[in-house]
């Protein structure tokens, strides 16, 4: 039900993904209040071939966004290996020099570097850090002056509301897109199968280790390393080749089953009024690995939905099912702890 127009919530920031400079301009033009992106190196969790920004492209992107009244956040959200911090410190330096509006960090070493070297650079804590308690969040705010935390997707809206009442920090929450394992930043499935780490190399299911095999009946198998993740029938929709969304056989099941998680897309358009009322400052759309067409369509749809809510109307979100992975949508933990 729509809220009364006299009881309008504060305007939240619509934060949108950009995997390329063209996607950044598309997001800004489609109504993003802010855009997040990363450099073409392992300092961000979407370190895929052909994706991301060179330093001069990032600078141009910041200029474009600022000229159009939008902010740019630099994703620096992977964890450096013990012996080499250079990719991460350079990313922070480039963000600061380019005039980025914030850097999204996950690692405490990177946070310490940024807080010391660039005290004027606003820091946001990535979902990869998995900070979901007041104590964990206070650690980052007190030690590194973190101003915003991106919430792990394990909290109900009631829990978010309670959390907000206990901390002095902005909250950012995912509202649409791919939703992964419940404990972000801890997943080692890709690393186990390929030796490439999602959390340190920035790639979940690196394309160099993925292959698709077509069967004579028109079926298609997704294979990561030596493991067959899924086999979809000729008329079935495919999903991303990630282990956590795979269907597997074992002796306890007569049919292939989703052992970890189902390949549904997070979409909480109908919960947005409650989420905003709970005190969330920024509404985040996932998908830096997705195309400009996805960015244009999803950002425009959510711009319309958020503006409707702020005007006291129902969200009225356009149908985005065609853009979703797998077989449906989910409200995730926002609606129930029992989701999978």
């Amino acid at each position: 039900m729509a809220k009364a127009a006299t009881d309008r919530p504060n305007r939240p920031e619509l934060l949108c993904p950009a995997g390329t400079p063209a996607a950044l301009r598309t997001a800004v033009d489609a109504g993003a209040d802010a855009v997040y992106c990363g450099l073409a190196r392992r300092s961000n969790v979407r370190n895929f071939p052909g994706l991301n920004f060179l330093p001069d492209e990032f600078l141009e992107g910041v200029d474009y966004a600022h000229a159009h009244g939008a902010k740019v956040l630099m994703a620096t959200n992977t964890f450096p290996p013990g012996d080499d911090l250079k990719d991460w410190t350079e990313t922070i330096d480039i963000a600061a020099e380019a005039g980025a509006d914030a850097a999204i960090i996950a690692d405490i070493g990177v946070a310490a570097y940024a807080a010391e070297k660039h005290p004027d650079l606003r820091l946001h804590l990535s979902v990869q850090a998995g900070a979901a308690s007041p104590e964990a969040i206070r650690f980052y705010t007190e030690h590194f002056n973190v101003k915003r935390v991106v919430l792990p997707r394990i909290l109900t809206i009631a829990e978010i509301r309670k959390l907000k009442s206990e901390i002095d920090c902005e909250l950012e929450s995912f509202i649409f897109g791919n939703v992964g394992m419940m404990a972000e930043g801890r997943c080692a499935l890709t690393s186990y199968v390929t030796g490439v780490s999602t959390n340190m190399d920035g790639m979940c299911s690196p394309p160099s280790h993925v292959r698709y095999e077509e069967g004579p009946d028109g079926s298609m198998s997704s294979v990561l390393g030596d493991i067959t993740i899924d086999c979809v029938g000729p008329n079935e929709k495919a999903g991303y080749p990630t282990i956590c969304k795979g269907r597997y056989w074992n002796s306890a099941h007569t049919e292939p089953y989703y052992a970890f998680d189902e390949p549904n897309t997070l979409n909480i358009a109908n919960l947005l009024p409650e989420l905003i009322e709970a005190g969330v400052t920024a509404l985040k759309i996932e998908g830096r690995q997705r195309s400009r067409a996805y960015v244009r369509e999803v950002v425009a749809a959510y711009r319309h939905a958020v503006d409707n809510i702020l005007a006291g109307r129902d969200p009225d979100l356009a149908n985005l099912v065609a853009l979703t992975e797998g077989r449906g949508e989910t409200k995730g933990a926002y609606a129930s702890k029992r989701w999978r």
Binding site: M220, V232, P234, N235, E236, K237, A238, G239, Y240, Q289, R290, S291, A293, Y294, E297, A322, L323, T324, E325, G326
Partner: peptide, 9 residues
């Protein structure tokens, strides 16, 4: 969207 074209086969 290229991924959507892939999802839909």
């Amino acid at each position: 969207d290229g991924d959507a074209l892939f999802f839909s086969r």
